[in-house]
Each structure stands twice: as structure tokens, then as C-alpha cells.
Design a protein around this nucleic acid. Sequence first.
DNA 1: CCCACAATTTAGGCAACCCTAAATCTGGAG
DNA 2: CTCCAGATTTAGGGTTGCCTAAATTGTGGG
Lengths: 237, 237
Amino acid sequence: MPTVSMEDYLKALYHLESRTPRVSTTALARWLHVAPASATEMLRRLAAWQPPLVHYTPRHGATLTPEGRRLALRIIRKHRLLERFLHDILGFPWDAVHAEAERLEHAVSDEFIRRLAALLGDPAYDPHGHPIPGPDLHLPPVTDTPLLHAPPGVPLVVKRVSDRDPGLLRRITELGLHLGQRLIVLERTPYDQLLHLQLEPGGGRAVVGPRLAQSIFVQQVEPPITPPPAAPLEAHR
Amino acid sequence: MPTVSMEDYLKALYHLESRTPRVSTTALARWLHVAPASATEMLRRLAAWQPPLVHYTPRHGATLTPEGRRLALRIIRKHRLLERFLHDILGFPWDAVHAEAERLEHAVSDEFIRRLAALLGDPAYDPHGHPIPGPDLHLPPVTDTPLLHAPPGVPLVVKRVSDRDPGLLRRITELGLHLGQRLIVLERTPYDQLLHLQLEPGGGRAVVGPRLAQSIFVQQVEPPITPPPAAPLEAHR
DNA sequence: CCCACAATTTAGGCAACCCTAAATCTGGAG
DNA sequence: CTCCAGATTTAGGGTTGCCTAAATTGTGGG
Ligand SMILES: [Mn+2]
Ligand SMILES: [Mn+2]
Ligand SMILES: [Mn+2]
Ligand SMILES: [Mn+2]
């Protein structure tokens, strides 16, 4: 029986905790597009909840309690399964599903989600490549890195894109990118940090700026089946 | 941009108007399980809306304006399509769909409903036999009557059941009744108004009290294909 | 080591919903 | 035609969630 707002704050706290263990009032307020005073007020409420959903030390930020984290993951599971449904079954474009799921996640029951998950075949990822917490709320560790920091010359796959900005997603589509797209960073230009990409196989080229490159997450492609002759192992330090 | 509460009040007004053209504060309050003072307050709000959603004369009840009726029908369309989805695709039992749809109806976008209607094949009725307003919000006129007032000895079909009380729906199922079930009223007992039913074809018997009989709506079965020899037409007055 | 300034909280308000208790109106019985 | 019981509104409050403006505090640069 947390309210819709409380659920959105819990989700925000969960996302922000992946960057900094303690979440500041300002970061929270900015993420949710509310005034800092509103975030302060909500943190007090979440800390006063029985059982408490955050540990809140005035002037020193907040952390989710285990119970807070559990609730956050429950909403995230609902959100991502709904996105899959909206995309796969209703045919919404991938830049439209987030906003719709943002409202629905607070309206669907646990029973609804159980049935939906079964209908969808218990998918492990949402349409943007975010992992979906299982019924036990477990999440696999993240193994991808922002394209921005990916090494040049190495074969990569697009694993995940951030999903809060529809314009960004449309731009990504325009460039010919999508989940599973293979590519190689050809060059990183100095000063303006543009990335020149070679899309594979046989795809074209694309240039992306740092804004975009920060929102696209890639992984190195597993090495080819016949590995190159093993070089003598270097000593690890 | 009416709120969730406003939408629920509009829907309630729509339902109550089918009984009495002017809806009283008390009737509205009772329907929504709120205090009369709360209904008064909301009626003022709805009347002050731009454009006004009700005509409200203090102490003399309210009526929906055309715009209010339009919004009510839009929510009812969402509600009933969602019930079909929950029932047909997610497999919810028919006594569970109403409560779930009651929340979802406020969270889904028009675009969601367009796509859902297409997926479902533009159904005309919800799982309880209520007609679903089309995209133009048109509703067919109701032609069924409460079983309570149905004539004995005549072949009938169950066309519609009221859906707000899950216990009622479960009871109806227990009795072997469902939409499309054919039956004949064998007898109406005096004083306690019990109806003895013969379920067809080849079905068993059932006895229902007035509470139930008021919530089940039936229609006479079309006459058999070879009509009885036409009696001479009586003059209409 | 201090102090200014950025971050944060406090104070005070507003809107939507809901409630109970007290006033007020109104239509129908007599 | 009067009057009263029941329907309805008004008065006064509570909660959630948001805001702006003012006060406060903690810390990092000097
Ligand atoms: Mn949300
Ligand atoms: Mn997503
Ligand atoms: Mn509702
Ligand atoms: Mn229904």
C-alpha cells in the first residue's frame, strides 16, 4: 500500500544507488523533476514508514532498506514486463513503451504480472535490454559498458540502451542501431569525442556524439570459435 | 486530464442516469461508497470544470453534460475492453476482472486501447455481457430484462450479469449459469419470490432468490425457425 | 582555521479527496 | 398551509504531494 509517488521515489532511489551508495536529496529531486523540498518531504515519509523503506540521515542523503529495495525491484519487474508486453504484443514502438509502463506499473496487481510473465514466456530482458527481475526479484549483474568508454578496434554488440528519452531512442533507430547490432569503434575524435562506428556485418558507418555514446551500452563479442594461437601468459600484477 | 476520482464519479453518474435522469447526491455517494459530503464536493468540481461535465443544481441532483457523457463512455470502453483482455488473454476468472479493470482503466492511454481493441478483434461485449462502446462511443440499446421479471414458461437466454460483486458471480457460476445459457422459469414461489429454473438443453434445475434474479438479465429466445401459423394481425392502437 | 556558498531543510501555501458533525433546505404528510 | 424528517450542504479537519521563499548547515577553498 505505498502510494504511486512513493513507488516512483523508491524506483528512483534504486537507480541512483547504482551510481552512489548514498543518494542526495538534490540528485533524487533532479531525477524525478521535483523541487528539492519535495524530495526531503518524501524521504522523511519513507523513513517513517513501517517498516522503514529508507535509512535517512538529514543533510547526508538516504539509502534503501532491504524492504525498500524489495519494493523497488517489484515495481521494476512490473515496469519491464509491461514494456515487453506493450512492445511484443501490442506493437508499440520501443520509444513509446516507457511512458506507458510508467503509469501501468502502479495499476497492475501481482496476479496480473504472474499471468503476464507466463504469457510472455518469462522474458529475461525488456525491449531496451534491461534485465527483468525474476519472481524472486533477483537481477543478474550488469556486464556491459557505455559505448563512450569502449575500446576501438574491438568487435562489440549493443546490449542495452537507456529508455527514459524517446527522442534518444528514435535517434538510435535512425542510425541503424538496435539491440544485438554488432559494431566496431573505428575512431574517437579528439576534443569533440565523436565516435566513428562500423556497423557489422556489412553495415554502413555511423557517427555518434558523447550524449548518445553514454546512453548505449555494449559488450565485447565472444572471441571467434578458433581462438588465435595463445600468446604466453603475462604475469598479472 | 480529469483525475482518477473524477473519472470514477463520471462513470457512476452514467450508470445511475440509466435509472433516474437526475442523479441525487445520496445515490451517487452510496454507489461510490463515500460520504454524501464528498459527493457534493465532487459535483461542484465537475460543474466548475471547463467545459462543465455535469449540470448541477444544488439540492436537486445532477446530470451529465454531453462532454461528461463522452468522457464517461470513454472510460467505460476502456474498462470493458480491459475486462475482455484480462479474461480472454490472461485467463482471469470472470469474477476477478472487474476489480483489476477498475484500476487499469485510468492508467491506459487511448493508443493502448486502440491497439488492444484490434488485438481482441473489436469485441462487442465484455465477459459479463455488457456492450462495449465503439471507438465512436456508440452503445447499442439494452434489450434484456432482469430474470426477476421474466415470464414463466418461456425459453430464455442469459445475456448479461452485473459484475461489481465477485461473490455474486461465483454464485452464478456454481448454479451452472453462464452467458448464453438457455433456461425456462418453471415457477415463481409466492412470498419469498424464489424462481425455479429449468436449464436447457438437458440441464438440471436451479433455484434462485430475488437478489440473484435481479442481477441476471435474460432475453426471450428467438422463435423456432418454422413460426407458428400466423394469427390474423390485431389492429395497433 | 574560517567563512561563504551550495545543499538542504523549514515554513507556509495550494489543490485534490476524503471524513464527521452541524446547519439548512424541501417536499410530502397531515 | 404547516411543519418535520430526511436529504443535502456547510464547516472544519486530516492526508498526500507538490510548490516557492526563507532559514540553516556543513564543507572545501583560501
Ligand atoms: Mn511510475
Ligand atoms: Mn526499459
Ligand atoms: Mn476506476
Ligand atoms: Mn463487466
